[in-house]
Simulated assay, not measured.
Amino acid sequence: MLTFAYAVILLIITPGPGVLTTAGFGAAYGFRPSLRYVLGLFLGTNMVMLAVITGLAAVVLSVPWLRVVLLAASTAYLLYLAARIALAGSRIAFIEAKSPPGVLGGIALQAINPKAYVVNTTLMTGFSFAPDNFAFEIVAKVLILNAIWIPIHLAWLYAGTVLHDLDLPDRTHRVINILMALAMLAVVGLAAWSATLLK
């Protein structure tokens, strides 16, 4: 169980679309207004988790043309975000938010977020700690995952609001932007790699 919890921390804390946009909305709108978006991400994550547990995700992703469409849409979106981050000026620009975040925006992101599917599939199908009681193991995994997911995303949201208020040099802003863009590109690479495993 501890190994599973450790894996959850490592897989969720790494930058992906969810945490990067969470920090971006925190920087743009502040902590409290962005909680609606984080709630959407939370609901979306749990919907993806349910789709993985029930096998619905495997069924949907087994349709070749649909898998290609979803992969193309998510890859294009992630590349767009990476470009926006890397090419931003001297401000930290996780994303440029033009409208207040909402619950539906968070749910929608998780629905096309390849990292959400990869992470949930990895966690739900691996790291078995109660092989004789499948129901207990799944319920325990869901509870542990959510107990870790919530504070990590709230920490990223807080980090975005703090970074917004810091007066960092332009060079530091640029380095942060490029590092975050590279993290987004790594997610794109992971999505492409996971797609080859599903064939």
Rank of each mutant, 00 (worst) to 15 (best):
A5K: 08
A7G: 11
A7V: 10
I9M: 09
I13C: 13
I13H: 06
G16P: 09
P17C: 01
P17E: 02
V19N: 15
T21Q: 11
T22W: 10
T22F: 09
G24H: 12
F25M: 10
G26Q: 13
A28H: 12
G30P: 13
F31H: 03
R32D: 03
P33H: 07
S34V: 11
L35K: 02
V38C: 10
V38I: 12
G40Q: 03
L41K: 01
L41V: 06
L41A: 04
L41E: 01
L43C: 07
N46R: 04
N46Q: 15
M49G: 06
M49P: 04
L50K: 03
L50Y: 13
A51W: 04
V52H: 10
V52Y: 11
T54W: 11
G55C: 08
G55T: 10
V59E: 14
V60R: 06
L61V: 00
L61A: 07
S62L: 05
V63G: 04
P64A: 11
W65Q: 11
W65A: 11
R67E: 03
V69I: 15
L70Y: 12
L71I: 04
L71A: 07
L71P: 02
A73F: 15
A76S: 06
L79S: 05
Y80W: 15
Y80D: 05
Y80M: 07
L81T: 06
A82L: 05
A82R: 05
R84E: 13
L87C: 07
L87G: 07
L87F: 13
A88G: 15
A88I: 02
G89C: 04
G89Q: 12
R91N: 09
I95L: 15
I95Y: 13
E96V: 06
A97D: 09
G102K: 08
G102A: 14
L104E: 00
L104R: 12
G106I: 03
G106Y: 14
L109S: 05
L109A: 07
Q110D: 06
Q110R: 11
A111D: 03
N113Q: 14
A116P: 07
Y117G: 05
V118Q: 04
V119P: 12
M124D: 00
T125C: 01
F127T: 01
F129Y: 14
F129D: 08
A130M: 11
P131E: 13
P131Y: 10
F134K: 10
A135W: 13
F136I: 02
E137K: 08
I138P: 00
V139R: 12
V139S: 06
A140F: 10
A140P: 08
K141W: 03
L143I: 14
I144Y: 02
L145E: 02
N146G: 12
N146A: 07
A147M: 09
P151I: 04
W156S: 02
L157R: 13
Y158R: 13
G160D: 11
T161F: 01
D165Q: 14
D165T: 13
D165W: 01
L166Q: 13
D167C: 02
P169F: 14
D170P: 07
T172R: 10
H173A: 10
R174W: 06
I176C: 03
I176E: 03
N177L: 04
I178H: 10
I178E: 04
M180P: 01
A181K: 11
L182Y: 04
A183G: 06
A183L: 05
M184D: 04
M184R: 05
A186E: 00
V187D: 09
V188E: 05
L190E: 14
L190M: 14
A191H: 13
W193L: 07
W193C: 00
T196P: 05
L197G: 10
L198R: 15
L198G: 00
